[in-house]
Design a protein around this nucleic acid. Structure first.
Lengths: 166, 166
DNA sequence: CTTGGAAAGTCAACAAGACTGACATAAAAT
DNA sequence: ATTTTATGTCAGTCTTGTTGACTTTCCAAG
């Protein structure tokens, strides 16, 4: 939209082969993307679901269960199983809401924050290395394509999160 | 490596915030990436695992089970369950190897090829739209970052596949 | 030639983590 | 007072990953 002007899109001929390469690149890259945290999690018998919960609680500290459900896109039963173990293990604290006492606000404990840092640092290290080796222009393009690939609901959440903490 | 020269990498300052945005972009984009095929698969009580098998059998027709295992990165038992249903449903054909009768060579039947086309076309449509809206430079950057993000084993497989059919 | 190991694949049983559905409780909203 | 909302729980199912035990086939060393 910015510098490519109005004519750029029509000039883009995309063969099925090019698209297939993009599809396979996503498949293999996502595996790399999750590999490091997965290794750490496996040692403590947690899974990717725990990682996602820790990530978004850290991201939006004090968020409610309902907010988390919307972001993660899972059922409350599924999330609840994960939250229950995180709370039991002392990584997450659930506080009853003050304005609305039905709500539970979720916070990371010190231990929870420590694990989140360990997991996200592993993931950031890989992302940092990829960004550095690809260069700044590639990074901008990477982000543009990913944003265009989200479905509308995900993009709305992504942009909302993007704003909220910048 | 190409046009960014030798000094580019040092100029790249990456805050944890920027990296977090990249991580979340991957998370949300991958959800969009798989959403369309997942909807189709759910209707026929197949899952993502079936899609992956169909994709790579189509990609390398006549491949062996062992080859497929290496690409998909799962155990042979896990793959076998998926293959069994695909074979039972007449989407995949398994032929005993001629040189080595221990090997099973895998082929898509007409029905299998039709389903693979349906699934991959849904995925290509989204990828095509994302590529078009992001523009050619962004696409090049997207691919560069994804390749850099793969772990070595995945990248080797990705590059091998990339060559083999071009 | 035979025997023993390696390789390819299959069967069985189990676990994580997603799902649905039904139900309970408490608090807010009408 | 009734309904709606937010959350939690129990029970059961499904997909897809795991490990362990097994068969068939191949190959190579004695």
């Amino acid at each position: 939209m910015a510098e490519s002007g109005t004519s750029g899109e029509n000039l883009l001929f995309l063969t099925d082969e090019q698209l297939r390469k993009g599809i396979e690149a996503m498949f293999f890259a996502y595996r790399g993307f999750t590999a490091d945290p997965d290794r750490i999690l496996a040692e403590m018998s947690y899974g990717r679901a725990h990682h996602r919960a820790l990530h978004f609680i850290n991201r939006s500290n004090g968020t409610t269960v309902n907010n988390l459900l919307a972001v993660l896109g899972v059922t409350k039963q599924s999330l609840n199983r994960v939250l229950r173990t995180l709370i039991a293990d002392g990584l997450v604290e659930s506080r009853i809401g003050q304005r609305d006492r039905r709500e539970r606000h979720l916070f990371l404990t010190e231990n929870g924050a420590a694990l989140e840092r360990q997991l996200s640092e592993a993931q950031r290290a890989r992302m940092r290395a990829a960004y550095r080796s690809a260069g700044p222009d590639a990074v901008a393009g990477f982000r543009r394509v990913l944003e265009a690939m989200m479905d509308d609901a995900s993009r709305a959440q992504y942009l909302a999160l993007k704003e909220s903490k910048s």
